[in-house]
Amino acid sequence: MTPSFSQIMLGAAGAVATQLGPRLKDDAYAVGQAQIIGLLMVLVAQEADRAADTLSLETVAMRALFAEASESPLPEGLRRRLRAMAEAAPPENFTISGLEKLAHPMKALLIELHEAVEDRPDDWARPLEAKCWDVLKLGADHRQLFMPGL
């Protein structure tokens, strides 16, 4: 897409800061709101291009973790659901909402898996807990946003 989402949002944020902001200088509330709106545009500029990619990476990582965990000595019911989720159909589409529709039930199952392995001293459980954190950190790291100076 040309111009890109990022370019459009950064351009709009610049217009808010340099064209609208100075006209609001006597209204402290309006200035504050304009700052926040401009800031949101800068954040959207960072996220728009990568949001679907982050969700895809997360779902791939969760599928791999669920496949591995389904072979561990967890309760059979949980193992069955892990296996089913690891083999779930691909997303209906690659929009953010389409990817979230697949990712949300996976994250709910990740909570269950994490809880099931985190207190166990067993040799098979420790690596699974570490891998739960790897998945969680992957998402947290990929979603970090750069904050411009206000």
């Binding site: 926040i36 954190w133 970090q144």
Partner: peptide
């Protein structure tokens, strides 16, 4: 802003901390 940016920061702060101190 807070529902997005601040949540993103706190998710990372917690994940970084707890992933270092498992079990």
């Amino acid at each position: 802003f807070s529902g997005w940016y601040c949540a993103t920061r706190h998710n990372k702060i917690i994940a970084d901390r707890l992933s270092q101190t498992t079990w």
